[in-house]
Design a protein around this nucleic acid. Sequence first.
DNA 1: TGTACATCAGTGAACGCGCGTTCACTGATGTAC
DNA 2: TGTACATCAGTGAACGCGCGTTCACTGATGTAC
Lengths: 206, 206
Amino acid sequence: MRYSREHKQETHDRIVRKASVRLREKGAHGIGVADLMKEAGLTHGGFYAHFDSREALVVEAFGYAMDRSMEHWRKITDEVSPEKRLALVAEAYLSTFHRDNPGHGCSIPALGAEIARESPKARKAFAGKLEEMIELLADYIPDVPRKAARKQAIATLATMAGSMLLARIAGSSELSDEVLKAGKDSALEGAKREPKAAAAKKAKQN
Amino acid sequence: MRYSREHKQETHDRIVRKASVRLREKGAHGIGVADLMKEAGLTHGGFYAHFDSREALVVEAFGYAMDRSMEHWRKITDEVSPEKRLALVAEAYLSTFHRDNPGHGCSIPALGAEIARESPKARKAFAGKLEEMIELLADYIPDVPRKAARKQAIATLATMAGSMLLARIAGSSELSDEVLKAGKDSALEGAKREPKAAAAKKAKQN
DNA sequence: TGTACATCAGTGAACGCGCGTTCACTGATGTAC
DNA sequence: TGTACATCAGTGAACGCGCGTTCACTGATGTAC
């Protein structure tokens, strides 16, 4: 059964899309090739017509998930004023919805540790997506020199990813809610603090 | 070969100790029972004289590793003034040494995500250790109401764990160093900020 | 336009392999007499 | 103190199982004439 020109690409994308959800839910090693193919409505034998190896799919699925996160952030911040964007992302990130739906959430708390242990080639691909994400968050910190914006973006991302990790370890308990709240407030305070510090510095220079 | 009374406990502890290192290095599913026993100088057959299942060892090894982290923190903060303790822990945590030696470092960035996906029973054991760690860090935030101290402790732990996660994804690159620095400064600023805010609040009330 | 052939995405059986777990056995040492 | 027996931590072969990967095959559709 030979298919039309776009068919293979569509199938390929569907596998990546479904895999990116299940991998975030179950971990980078928590689900097998056969089950991933079943998710896409296929049998396991066809897998290698689309990917060189299981790891190649994991890399692609991770990249896809990171792209979806960034797209989501762009979408929710699209129509708000620049100085409110970072706070809005932090609010959305540190929600119970995100905690309880890792399959559709950020890959960093879900897959970061396993990813850091993959092959150097794979890890570099991951690091590239991380860099993109930092740059995007830095764009949400206006009126600050780029280097300081990057620094604040990194700190915010670290606080968000770390809080989500802790919240998921805590389950859906009182502690978990406490963690989300603490992380949110910390990220928001950090976001507020940086511009002020820069402004103070500027005032001093003039 | 029957052994003396303490021998079994010693062997048990040695397995846990060695496993806690290798599991942090390779991930909760990254090394098998046979290899873990070999680390302890034994063959795999004897494993079930010590543990009900592989998962039981993972739980014990995680708890052991968390205890070692806390012991380490107590040790390095033992002789410094209370208000410097949190900063000292953050400095040690966000070092390149810690980044490059996950086997002897904090379990949260190394195993947190996999742990959050284990059985509810196991996850609760992990959450208990997390709670202990938060309490310990809160002890390092003096002159602040307990609730605020806990909040700051959680935020600091989240920033530390998140930064370590990002730094390891980034490998040992320029980005990785930038992440460690940003995380360190953010954790230290957070530690400084909270007492001031509390002081301002107090002043207002009086 | 109609026909013969080539293509290749997808199927499902099979592969070797490593895993967690079980089990019959060993033999040094503790215990009972 | 010496002897016979019981214990049980540790051994290593074996178990069933699921994994990633390979492969011969299928058959609908694109392409060449």
